[in-house]
């Protein structure tokens, strides 16, 4: 056995910043959050917003079907070869945190088959408030909750809300109808997250995904600059 043996050309390991051929790999951003909070809709909007300026791909982690991948295909947000689905055996958090091997293979295959990519979005299957991405899989993660899922979620905290690099509070247009207190949510999020950013989003507004796209752009710029 050679414990000091370095990994050779055929497979990069987890978080290595370079691909086996020596080129820098794509930035990987994870999107997690509860079922129905708008992860897939945010991914679709991000693709439409960023696809002209960045070479993009998406990995979905559906719990039960290929519906998320099929939604993205139907919406034609990216060419089909840039969207791939990972099956998670009833445990979406396992596939993004405890055993990331299938997702790593999906991102590596995308880069092998499409060529150099700038950004890969890895969307988790809808899960609970403790689901976070392994640092071996993504470089940064967005946690998406929505105002209709209960305005006490930021106060309850949990690893997704407290530690994600970006917290998105989605569907703000629904707040008046479900009686959610946006200011209270913002104050609770601030208390849980200190300086970490929070974006309130309504994909139906004119602003749409703009602020989240701007955050993703800044992540990519920092990633590119650190090469």
């Amino acid at each position: 056995m050679h414990l000091d043996h370095s990994h050779d050309e055929s497979t990069a390991v987890s978080a290595d910043a370079h691909r086996p051929d020596g080129h820098r790999r794509a930035l990987r951003i994870g999107l997690g959050g509860p079922v129905g909070s708008g992860k897939t809709a945010t991914v679709a909007a991000l693709c439409k917003e960023l696809r002209e300026e960045l070479s993009l791909a998406v990995v979905t982690n559906d719990i039960y079907t290929r519906e998320d991948a099929e939604f993205l295909l139907r919406e034609a947000v990216l060419p089909p070869e840039r969207i791939t689905a990972v099956e998670t055996g009833a445990c979406p958090h396992t596939a993004i945190r405890d055993d990331i091997s299938a997702n790593l293979e999906a991102v590596e295959d995308l880069e092998d088959e499409i060529g150099p990519l700038d950004l890969i979005l890895v969307e988790s299957g809808g899960d609970n408030l403790t689901a976070t991405f392994s640092k071996g899989l993504v470089d940064a993660q967005i946690f998406v909750i929505d105002v209709a899922g209960g305005d006490d979620i930021p106060r309850k905290g949990g690893p997704g809300v407290t530690t994600a690099d970006l917290l998105v509070v989605n569907k703000t247009d629904l707040a008046p109808y479900v009686g959610s207190d946006l200011e209270g949510m913002a104050a609770d999020a601030k208390a849980q997250r200190a300086e970490l950013p929070v974006i309130f989003q309504s994909l139906r507004s004119d602003v749409g995904v703009g602020p989240v796209a701007a955050w993703a752009r800044a992540q990519y710029a920092a990633w590119a600059a650190s090469a």
């Binding site: 043996h5 990994h7 390991v13 790593l104 293979e105």
Partner: peptide, 14 residues
């Protein structure tokens, strides 16, 4: 392939 990735991390070997 997934086993290979884990094995190479755990017990690196030519």
């Amino acid at each position: 392939r997934q086993m290979m990735r884990a094995a190479r991390s755990a017990w690196p070997d030519p």
